[in-house]
């Protein structure tokens, strides 16, 4: 496996995959940090981030996953490389190596995002201490849907030579996931699609905000963490991985 991962690294050298992923991450950070930090928001900055960031993550991380998965898998589709590679190693191992390499890139971007968010909060002088435990759970609850989406995109990108198909499937799913976050009256919708889990696992809500009084009576509330649906998501990810690996194994290259 180490050998295969080294091969992946060599194949992607000077293809700017990591830089592309970092640029998307930078866009997310600019988008997330844009705004006025004063009064209530500055005082409750840490909670405000935990409330706002899942929505922003649901826009950017699926796109990051689509682009990274497509870039890595497209190398093989171009020039019929899969025919050559599958004579040298098992198809399943190739699927795993590409998946691990892609997840590594996505994990690095997640780490950069989390680090930047905390540094930004410190520099801006958010009120109170950093709620370390809540932020660790937030990181876990952001990484889990991102990995699920990545496994889905990786499978589609490996299966289809036409990369427009995984792109379209991913974008439509992401769109549905983003909208599901604005529909609390339809909790089943966000639970039914992997892109909706950024919302399912969100555990901070804002109450008391109105157009007239704005933040005068506003407050943040921490919900119970939904470990049941976190477990459901992990199981879903494993099932998608097993099905994807099997489908790739059966595919004629």
């Amino acid at each position: 496996m180490i050998g295969l991962l080294k091969c992946e690294y060599r194949k992607t050298r000077r293809r700017y995959v990591f830089i592309t992923a970092l640029v998307i991450t930078a866009c997310e950070l600019v988008f997330a940090f844009y705004g006025k930090y004063e009064g209530f928001i500055l005082e409750n900055g840490w909670m405000s981030f935990l409330y706002q960031l899942p929505l922003i993550n649901s826009i950017f991380f699926p796109v990051l996953s689509i682009v990274v998965a497509s870039r890595l898998c497209d190398i093989e589709h171009k020039g019929q490389q899969l025919k050559l590679l599958c004579t040298m190693t098992e198809k399943g191992r190739l699927y795993d190596a590409k998946l691990l390499y892609g997840l590594g890139i996505v994990s690095l971007c997640l780490a950069v995002t989390f680090g930047a968010e905390i540094i930004f909060g410190k520099v801006m002088g958010f009120g109170g201490e950093l709620p370390v435990k809540l932020y660790l759970i937030y990181m876990l609850f952001t990484a889990a849907p991102t990995f699920a989406v990545y496994v889905f995109q990786h499978t589609l990108s490996m299966l289809f030579k036409n990369q427009a198909i995984p792109f379209f499937a991913g974008i439509i799913g992401e769109f549905a996931g983003l909208f599901s976050m604005f529909l609390p009256q339809l909790p089943a919708l966000r639970k039914a699609i992997i892109w909706g889990y950024y919302g399912v696992l969100q555990f901070v809500g804002l109450y008391g905000w109105t157009k007239e009084t704005r933040y005068e009576n506003a407050y943040f509330e921490i919900y119970d963490r939904d470990w049941t649906f976190f477990a459901v998501l992990v199981v879903l990810t494993v099932v998608m991985y097993l099905i994807g690996r099997k489908l790739f194994d059966m595919k004629e290259v």
Binding site: F168, I172, F175, S180, L183, Q185, L186
Partner: peptide, 20 residues
């Protein structure tokens, strides 16, 4: 099949936007 995405994609905001 790429044209299909242009047909399906607007259905998502139409449906969910209307519910919202």
């Amino acid at each position: 099949p790429v044209w299909i995405a242009f047909i399906i994609m607007p259905v998502v905001p139409a449906l969910l936007g209307t519910i919202n």
